[in-house]
Write a protein that binds this DNA or RNA. Structure first.
Lengths: 100, 100
DNA sequence: GACCAAGTTCGATGATCATCAAACCGATGT
DNA sequence: ACATCGGTTTGATGATCATCGAACTTGGTC
């Protein structure tokens, strides 16, 4: 059964923007959005090590942009688009809609 | 007579987000937006030195978020809201609309 | 139980960046 | 001409941060 973690608050606008200002993290967020469902960590990045990826996941989670859920023992990352939109309407959705 | 500088391209989304992810710069942008017109540099910040402020202005300009214009010999900074919106619709406006 | 795959944490390294003071520059006013 | 005010540039310093490898953990598999 999918086991989602305790709901955290969305961070400050500053935190959210800082989280999205790194190219590796923005790409991760784009892939999560494209997936539209909890995605296994490994499919969310290329070109960086596991430890670096884990570090970026943590920053995204702490900003409240994503959350972790465990599905069948595997860790997945999921975009919290609705939650972020509720606090900062339009911010994340417009970033996701922006041209590459 | 107001003398605006050559129009620069708006930078990458990454550059724009990075420019806005610094608290000092976001505050500058908010004040420019509140002013709604070219604003003298000095009214756009507190708590940092002139040189630091000048550094932040440069980063905002290079990201294409602001431009410089000279009015009666005085340097002014002006938000390029329409230009940024044209390239990344909703991004800057939603950030400006976000709660403090 | 031994093994393996997937993630996380730790510690260290290098790069980037925010910050300041001081020197510099351009325009205005005396 | 000189002083002054507003802003920029330079150079340096300290902090933050992205990155990695290695060690550790947890869950599934044989």
């Amino acid at each position: 059964m999918p086991e989602t973690e305790v709901r955290a608050e969305v961070g400050s606008l500053q935190e959210v923007l800082a989280a999205l200002s790194d190219p590796v993290r923005l790409e991760m967020v784009r892939r999560m959005h494209a997936a539209g469902a909890p995605a296994a960590c490994a499919v969310l990045y290329d070109d960086v090590s596991k430890s670096t990826a884990s570090h970026h996941f943590k920053i995204l989670r702490e900003a409240g942009v994503t959350q972790r859920s465990v599905i069948g023992g595997q860790t997945h990352q999921e975009l919290r688009l609705e939650d972020v939109e509720a606090v900062y309407p339009g911010v994340l959705s417009s970033i996701l809609a922006a041209p590459r």
